[in-house]
């Protein structure tokens, strides 16, 4: 994980995004414990309130849940849920690629051909 103090994304949002990325990548699997607020605050030298606020974004989204006295756990099905969201949002991921292709004067066919070529590699 990496946190960027220069970013326009508030730090708590960065915490939330990185935790989501961790779930999506399988670093934190369904029903597994995520690092405690204290451990994350210590590791990345962040204010624990910032970390907690970031974690609460995921709690509100039903991705992690608090088990009293033990800690935070990834909800059952969270990985699949995040995958579906990422697929639904894939258009946003593609936007800069399409823009870059347009800026180079490529047409749709040329972009699709480039994707075909990249897919096979």
């Amino acid at each position: 994980m990496h946190f960027d103090a220069d970013s326009v994304v508030p730090l708590f949002q960065q915490v939330a995004e990185q935790l989501q990325a961790g779930i999506l990548s399988g670093a934190f699997q369904d029903n597994e414990q995520v690092p405690s607020t204290t451990a994350m605050a210590r590791q990345y030298q962040l204010n624990p309130a910032t970390v907690l606020k970031g974690m609460n974004v995921l709690v509100d989204a039903g991705l992690i849940e608090k088990k009293r006295g033990i800690g935070m756990f990834v909800c059952d099905g969270a990985t699949a849920k995040l995958q579906q969201l990422a697929i639904a949002d894939f258009g946003d991921t593609l936007k800069p690629v399409i823009q870059a292709a347009k800026a180079l004067g490529m047409d749709k066919q040329a972009l699709l051909a480039a994707i075909d070529k990249g897919w096979e590699q």
Binding site: A41, R42, Q43, Q45, N47, P48
Partner: peptide, 13 residues
């Protein structure tokens, strides 16, 4: 770095 980490931890606990 160790000091900042200890500060984060002791403040949290």
């Amino acid at each position: 770095e160790l000091f900042y980490q200890e500060l984060a931890e002791t403040f949290s606990s």
